[in-house]
């Protein structure tokens, strides 16, 4: 496909990248309660727990915001669950890399130590993902648009602008959120890439904002072993509700399997303690101060 000039792209924010693939569900969905999760990082045990919880919570459709691989064991298992259970899935930077056979995960780290550990998980994930699953990852949409009632939702991995943009709670200003929503013609932008959940609505319009659903592959650097995902629904008055939910799963089994696969002790420690031991240098001041390392 030919490269679009930036001037052309600006006229249609959905085409900010030459190979954007937008899954447009705006005409087809009548759901009033959906579940959103991201960052499986091969944690198929947490994936099953989250999907079960979403069913119990009454989610009519479940969306996966990308990054099936990384960090944990047995990459194929998560992808099989996603495909078997008909989860509406989109592509994260990891899936783009694995699907297209790239050299690294494109996570966007800047620190050599962070990149060292990222490369270990990427090499493991790439080597252990079957070719037919890589093909599936390669073709996933890069963003999803849908309506919930009258509200326009835009699902992206990092941000609608860039797959690996970090939208942290304490470094994403409210005026920026408003600009992003206006530029993208959306009311709620849902993302996952940072792996730590948060949400912020505009003071001027509580039906508009950003929802970062966190990640289900590893804990949120909060000392708890649970992982996070989100439910979004419409209430009786037609307002948009979103709830971040934490889910427990069998961390002992995951840790044992990670050890059996020879994955780094630092990764296992995170699963067993709830504290991040890697990817620390990208954290803003407040998120870093909230962790142990």
């Amino acid at each position: 496909m030919g490269m679009k000039s930036r001037e052309e792209s600006r006229l249609d924010p959905m085409m900010t990248r030459p190979n954007d693939r937008v899954l447009d569900l705006r005409g087809g969905s009548s759901a009033s309660r959906i579940a959103l999760f991201g960052g499986i990082y091969n944690n198929y045990l947490a994936l099953n727990a989250v999907l079960d919880d979403a069913v119990r919570a009454g989610a009519e459709t479940v969306f996966f915001l990308g990054d099936a691989g990384g960090f944990g064991p047995h990459p194929d298992r998560s992808i099989e669950i996603l495909r078997d259970r008909d989860i509406v899935s989109m592509q994260g930077n990891y899936d783009d890399s694995v699907g297209n056979g790239l050299d690294d995960c494109q996570c966007g780290y800047v620190d050599p130590r962070d990149n060292h550990y990222a490369q270990i998980s990427y090499d493991y994930t790439f080597a252990n993902t079957s070719q037919h699953h890589r093909d599936w990852l390669r073709e996933l949409p890069t963003s999803i648009r849908l309506n919930l009632g009258s509200h326009r939702l835009l699902l992206a991995h990092g941000s609608p602008r860039r797959v690996n943009e970090f939208l942290w709670e304490t470094t994403t200003s409210e005026p920026f959120i408003e600009r992003l929503l206006d530029e993208q013609r959306a009311d709620l932008v849902c993302v996952t890439h940072t792996g730590i959940p948060w949400q912020r609505r505009l003071a001027t319009d509580p039906n508009r904002g950003v929802l970062n659903v966190g990640a289900i592959g590893r804990p949120a650097n909060d000392g708890s072993l649970s992982v996070w995902y989100a439910l979004v629904s419409i209430d009786e008055s037609g307002d948009l509700r979103s709830e971040l939910r934490s889910v427990a799963y069998d961390t002992e089994r995951l840790a044992a399997e990670m050890r059996n696969e020879g994955l780094p002790d630092e990764f296992v420690e995170t699963i067993e303690t709830g504290w991040w031991t890697t990817c620390l240098e990208i954290l803003p001041a407040k998120e870093r101060a909230a962790g142990r390392f």
Binding site: S173, P175, F176, L180
Partner: peptide
């Protein structure tokens, strides 16, 4: 002016 322009950081 920065607030009006949607500055992030």
């Amino acid at each position: 002016a920065a607030k009006d322009s949607g500055v992030k950081e």
